[in-house]
Design a protein around this nucleic acid. Structure first.
Lengths: 107, 107
DNA sequence: TAATTATATTGCAATATTACGATGAATATT
DNA sequence: AATATTCATCGTAATATTGCAATATAATTA
């Protein structure tokens, strides 16, 4: 036990859950906001900005990258990360699809 | 280690992460969708619909209830759950606030 | 080329989540 | 009143997540 039974749910439900996980940690929310506001930034800046260890930031960045939300481009010894606009819109659409399923009041 | 360092992040970042956690499990997404489409339903129906044990469903319902997303009203021996419209809109707004922070393209 | 800088990966400890059987509490039925 | 039904809670096992030190890798500089 203790294992999520993905086979019980639809592809869409599993997909949304997988995406929601990304936003389910304040560090990743903070990273995304920082990438948005600085328009793109290198890992070192994020380590400075947030108070987490370099290894931890790197791990969070990987999770964001794995789901295609951010992209990293190598710039010499550094890596410059930024939001993937297409994916971002896609995710917003998926969330709003759920949000908009509920319209009226029942209770 | 292993503990999320909530104090490093803003109230808003922590709040959003806490809410995202709710959507981060397909069973809870499925429960919400079922509540939306049937307009309200009792725990027993959810146990039938999803293939999870009653105790597990009950646990997921509690998490949804704890964050105010759903409400349960006792109806005899059963409990009828439904979406909390105010909270639902509030959550949609919070998510869209993040989604809309990113507008233009950087890369 | 050796030392430095920047980031990723590995390994592990602490904690959180998921799932369910067993049990409890409350209402409904006989 | 005894039994059945419905749901919540407790305890526990399995697994996942978070965080970081240590180390690896790759580019830069001295």
């Amino acid at each position: 036990m203790g294992v999520t039974k993905f086979d019980l749910f639809t592809k869409e439900q599993n997909e949304l859950a997988r995406l929601a996980r990304v936003f389910a940690h304040p560090a990743r929310v903070a990273i995304l906001q920082h990438l948005i506001h600085t328009n793109a930034c290198i890992t070192g800046a994020l380590v400075q900005e947030l108070g987490l260890a370099q290894a931890t930031i790197s791990q969070h960045l990987r999770e964001l990258k794995d789901l295609g939300i951010i992209r990293g481009t190598v710039e010499g010894a550094s890596v410059c990360y930024c939001i993937n606009p297409t994916r971002w819109k896609e995710i917003r659409h998926l969330f709003n699809q759920l949000f908009d399923q509920f319209e009226h009041n029942c209770c």
